[in-house]
């Protein structure tokens, strides 16, 4: 059984997504919806990390339930940088790149949850299936958020 390995990989991917969302939030502090929503959505992935760590024990994995936090000195510096960059049009391109990255990372996480849900059904592990279904629903919403934001922002940033 290779479920433990998938959980380990997913644990890493969700952690990376948390990190990415926080970074996007800090870099785009002056784009207030991005700033706030990225943090809210990072919260979902942090919860996923906790759930993965909890269920990982059943599959022989000792995973860290404490996902990366926020508010280090470097992050404050990034926020300040965002405020100073906020009047320059080039910040827009960076925003599109960052949203694309969230989209890609969240899509990877989604694929991992799909795999887990398939395996859980195959071996009839209800606990795992329940976690996978709950968390995956939120991952899909993270993807749609990034996609929606890309769609909404691209025109203005690219044509002006």
């Amino acid at each position: 059984m290779k479920i433990g390995l998938v959980l380990e990989g997913l644990h890493r991917s969700e952690n990376e997504l948390v990190h990415e969302l926080f970074m996007v939030s800090e870099r785009h502090k002056v784009d207030h919806e991005i700033y706030h929503l990225a943090r809210d959505l990072a919260g979902w992935s942090r919860q996923h990390v906790r759930e993965i760590a909890a269920i990982g024990k059943q599959y022989g994995k000792d995973l860290d339930p404490g996902p990366p936090g926020e508010s280090s000195l470097m992050e404050k510096i990034r926020e300040k940088g965002s405020e100073m960059m906020g009047r320059q049009g080039e910040a827009g391109l960076l925003l599109l790149r960052d949203l694309r990255e969230v989209y890609v990372k969240a899509s990877g996480v989604s694929a991992d949850w799909e795999m887990l849900a398939q395996a859980a059904q195959g071996i009839k592990h209800r606990d795992l299936l329940d976690v996978a279904q709950r968390c995956h629903a939120q991952t899909l919403r993270q993807i749609k958020w990034a996609n929606g934001k890309l769609k909404e922002s691209s025109t203005q940033i690219l044509v002006s």
Binding site: V30, H32, E33, R87, G89, E152
Partner: peptide, 18 residues
């Protein structure tokens, strides 16, 4: 091609100069 630009986003576009 996308949802209409809401006011707070318009203010942001004014802020960044587009």
């Amino acid at each position: 091609y996308s949802p209409p630009t809401h006011l707070m986003q318009m203010m942001r576009y004014v802020e960044e100069g587009s």
